[in-house]
């Protein structure tokens, strides 16, 4: 039992050293990219903001498509025509 745990500890210590080294590399790369892009957010904030934006985009797109469908039905024309009238492409 102690031998097994000791072996596990040695493996974990080696793993820990690897992870520390990896963190240094990643941290450096993140800081370089942030500097290039003039971004001051922390890594987690970058991720959270990205997710929030994707969510907002998806929700707005759903609303936009639904409204243009309502308008198309009311006008008895195609959704594509409604978009053209607004000056937008349907794509994206």
């Amino acid at each position: 039992m102690p031998c097994t745990i000791e072996l596990s500890n040695e493996k974990r210590e080696a793993q820990l050293e690897e992870l520390k080294a990896a963190k240094c590399r990643l941290q450096k790369e993140f800081e370089e990219l942030s500097a290039e892009l003039s971004i001051v957010h922390k890594p987690k904030d970058v991720i959270d903001l990205h997710i929030q934006r994707l969510k907002e985009y998806n929700e707005l797109r759903d609303v936009g498509l639904r409204l243009t469908q309502l308008i198309a039905d009311e006008k008895a024309c195609k959704v594509k025509d409604v978009f053209e009238e607004m000056g937008y492409e349907v794509a994206d």
Partner: peptide, 28 residues
Amino acid sequence: LGQAIKILRKYDQETKILLLIDKWRSIS
């Protein structure tokens, strides 16, 4: 860090999302 780096490496995509948000908000 890995995920954040992926986002920053393709930050033009992030910019594109912001433009799409503006587009669909205008449409809505």
